[in-house]
């Protein structure tokens, strides 16, 4: 099932629909403005290269925000109780990245689900792994 509206629709092992979020320079710069994280390694490819990166990189906290948005798209109205991300490698601005997720546990009494999350870089490396716990209201 691609979109979940009620806890009863959640099944252990369900996969969230893969997402390819927009990490264009315009989007990342907009994020950095809202976060007051206007560092050149995020917003300027050439400056990032001078710091030793292959190009400008997506801020770690933005990658967590992208995953949160994916969860809300999968289950509109759910509440994210916690989200934990580990930054394993850089994700490049203006590249194609893919987000994945899967349900790894559910609690019928609390109407919660636990999710495994990841973001794969364009070259196939895993850039971010994580988990989240979400609660449904009905």
């Amino acid at each position: 099932m691609s979109t979940i509206y009620k806890f009863a629709e959640v099944e252990l092992g369900d996969e969230l629909p893969n997402e390819t979020p927009d990490v264009s320079m315009a989007k990342v710069t907009s994020f950095c403005t809202s976060a007051k994280h206007l560092f050149e390694r995020f917003t300027d490819h050439e400056a990032a290269k001078k710091e030793g990166f292959p190009g400008a990189i997506v801020p770690g906290i933005m990658s967590q925000g992208l995953l949160a948005a994916m969860i809300h798209k999968w289950a509109p109205g759910c509440n994210i109780m916690s989200i934990d991300t580990v930054f394993r490698g850089s994700l490049l601005v203006d590249s194609n990245i893919t987000m994945t997720g899967a349900v790894t546990d559910t609690d019928d009494d609390e109407m919660t689900a636990e999710l495994d999350l990841s973001i794969i870089a364009e070259d196939g490396r895993t850039g971010v792994i994580g988990t989240a716990k979400v609660q449904f209201l009905s």
């Binding site: 997402e19 979020p21 927009d22 989007k27 990342v28 907009s30 994020f31 809202s34 976060a35 906290i61 933005m62 967590q64 925000g65 992208l66 949160a68 948005a69 994916m70 809300h72 798209k73 509109p76 109205g77 994210i80 989200i83």
Partner: peptide
């Protein structure tokens, strides 16, 4: 912040929403 993250839920985008709030992170 929410818009840059690709958020689609009005709770995080519409200040007129009755439950308008900051994105989780």
């Amino acid at each position: 912040w929410a818009r840059a993250c690709g958020e689609t839920d009005a709770r995080f985008l519409d200040p007129g929403h009755h439950d308008f709030q900051a994105h989780p992170g």
